[in-house]
Simulated scan of single mutants.
Amino acid sequence: MLAARLRELAFLNRELDITLTDDRDPASHRAVRFRFPGGPRDHIAEQSAPLHLEVFGFERECPEMEGTVEVALRWCDSREERVASYANSRPTLGGGTHELGFRDGLAVAINAYAREQGLLTPSDLDFTPTQLGAGLTAIVSVKLDRPEFEGALRDRPGDGPVRTCVAEAVRDHLTNWLRADPAQATAVLTQISATTHH
């Protein structure tokens, strides 16, 4: 549990270099180092069975929400979705406006690109959240100067501009990434379009 949390702190804060040492048994002294100079992208890069080689990621400062957003993602050859979100390095298990913004931006970018490429015709419905999430592994992290948390556990950022800022950032960067590498984009869209609607 402690090791997992230290690992999270290390990939969410690339300047950190954390070593956890177990001195309980001198005969089997063990130390584990957590360091991710590439931030969340390094963490995502360790996931197995990727559909595309490059891990998509970016960091953007958003004055409207008085903070920054960092996203890293990769689609893998599976049907499982694994999206983890954080606010000021705290896990936001209850989701929040940053996670909603991530999903908004993802949907806009993927659906628009699919229509550009003729995978979706004007009469086709947009891809569903289930389709977009098939095989998706992602980290969504916001760092806010003045966060406002809501929910029973105070574990969800509820700041008004956060959703819009994150959605715009994801849309812009993901659209550029899809257009820059059609082969990777095709691999992702093939999996998404093959996933059953729910």
Score class of each variant (00 low, 15 high):
V32C: 03
I139F: 10
R90Q: 15
R163F: 08
D181E: 15
R24P: 03
Q184R: 02
A31E: 15
I139C: 07
S85V: 00
F58N: 01
A49L: 03
G151W: 05
Q131I: 04
A187S: 09
P129L: 09
V55H: 02
R7A: 02
P182M: 06
Q191Y: 01
T21Y: 08
G160I: 04
R60W: 11
L20H: 12
R30N: 10
F102N: 01
V140H: 06
A112P: 07
E61A: 12
D159L: 08
R79F: 11
R90E: 15
V170E: 03
D159I: 01
G105Y: 04
L132D: 09
G160E: 08
L16H: 05
V170K: 10
F149A: 14
H197G: 13
Q131R: 03
I18N: 08
G133H: 08
R115A: 13
H197Q: 15
R74C: 08
L93M: 14
V83R: 13
R7Q: 04
D22Q: 06
T137W: 05
I139D: 05
D42I: 01
L144P: 13
H198L: 15
A152K: 12
F56L: 05
T130F: 12
E64D: 11
T97H: 12
K143R: 15
L2Q: 01
L20T: 07
L51Y: 08
D145E: 11
R35D: 04
G118F: 10
P50R: 06
T164N: 09
A72V: 04
L119P: 10
A45N: 00
G38K: 10
F127K: 12
P129Y: 14
A114V: 08
E15S: 14
T137H: 02
E46Q: 06
G57V: 04
V108Y: 09
R154Q: 15
L20Q: 13
T128P: 09
Q117C: 11
T175R: 10
P157A: 08
P157K: 07
R82V: 00
S141H: 14
H29E: 00
S78G: 14
F149I: 08
E150Q: 06
E80S: 15
D23G: 13
G101E: 00
G158F: 12
P122H: 05
I18W: 11
R179D: 07
T21I: 15
Q117W: 04
R146C: 14
I139N: 06
E46T: 07
P91E: 08
R74S: 06
P182G: 03
S89H: 09
V69G: 01
V32G: 06
D22P: 01
L153E: 13
P147F: 04
L51A: 08
P129V: 08
H198Y: 15
S28T: 12
A169I: 02
E15C: 05
T97S: 08
S89M: 11
D155T: 10
L153C: 02
G118Q: 07
A109M: 10
P63G: 01
P50L: 07
L51H: 09
Y113T: 03
A109S: 05
G67N: 00
E80H: 15
F127H: 12
S123K: 03
A180H: 11
G151Y: 02
P50F: 02
P157D: 09
A107H: 11
G95A: 09
R14M: 03
L2K: 06
E116D: 06
V55D: 00
Y86H: 04
H173C: 14
R60F: 10
L16F: 03
A152T: 13
S85I: 06
E99N: 14
V166F: 11
